[in-house]
């Protein structure tokens, strides 16, 4: 993750063209069209069930659109090493924290000789230095979340998707994750996050995608979204009303 190793953001922009995802008879994403550009973090917000997770998965290429298409840097296929995903409840492999990262390094085809250096660097970056040898599954929730980020960054991605990374964390652990997001943004990695936490979106987001019932209600720069929301849904969401 040194400056000169930073990959060119070739997977960006990510463009959704009229993307619909259905599961059985349920429409999860409904005719989305938008573009995710390089730069500061983009946040996907919206109530539960609004389609945030499926949106991120479609942007990662893990879910194929039922209709429409997603392109990365103008191409249909995903370049395999340049996207990374941190799931809301990351699954730790049954081995040490360090081996979890090594596993991703070898899956990404990083030569074994570079592993030691990369592991040391990544553990320092996510603030887990000293916990390398611990069993990954015995780490706390916040530590596991940070390890999952380290694992994702091991792929040296141009874009990292984080699905509600702080949903079940206390303020200290949340701050640690937000600091990591700032650090990697400074290093040129595009972060795309989903959250319920409007404060977090205000602190970190460059721009907002607001989803409701599988549809894009509003997109725009963060300040604009929070100060002058155009839609009644966004307005009541920001004001803390229950939106169902």
């Amino acid at each position: 993750m040194t400056e000169n190793m930073r990959p060119p953001p070739s997977d960006l922009p990510i463009a959704f063209e009229n993307v619909t995802v259905t599961e059985g008879s349920v429409t999860i994403l409904d005719r989305l069209s938008l573009t995710i550009s390089p730069g500061e973090p983009t946040f996907v917000i919206g109530p539960n069930g609004s389609g945030k997770t499926t949106f991120l998965r479609a942007a990662m290429g893990l879910v194929a659109p039922t209709e429409g298409r997603v392109t990365w840097g103008g191409r249909d296929g995903v370049s395999p090493h340049k996207l990374a995903f941190v799931f809301q409840r990351p699954v730790m492999l049954r081995r040490s924290a360090e081996s979890n990262v090594r596993f991703t390094l070898s899956a990404a085809g990083v030569p074994r000789i570079e592993h030691d250096g990369r592991v040391a660097e990544l553990f320092k970056l996510v603030g887990l230095d000293g916990l390398q040898k611990r069993s990954a599954r015995r780490l706390s929730g916040g530590e596991q979340q940070r390890l999952a980020i380290a694992r994702a960054l091991a792929r040296d991605p141009s874009v990292i998707f984080l699905d509600e990374p702080t949903a079940s964390l206390d303020p200290a652990a949340t701050k640690a994750i937000e600091d990591i997001v700032r650090t990697i943004t400074a290093r040129g990695v595009k972060a795309v996050l989903s959250t319920h936490d409007l404060g977090q979106a205000r602190r970190l987001a460059n721009d907002i995608i607001f989803l409701h019932r599988g549809r894009i209600i509003e997109t725009g720069a963060t300040s604009e979204f929070f100060e002058s929301p155009r839609s009644p849904e966004a307005r009541s969401f920001i004001e803390g009303d229950l939106l169902v």
Partner: peptide, 19 residues
């Protein structure tokens, strides 16, 4: 349990079975 992580990490079939 591992399916999503494997998909996101782009783990090949041999490494997948071994893991």
């Amino acid at each position: 349990e591992y399916r999503d992580e494997f998909a996101a990490m782009n783990v090949g079939p041999v490494q997948r079975i071994g893991t």
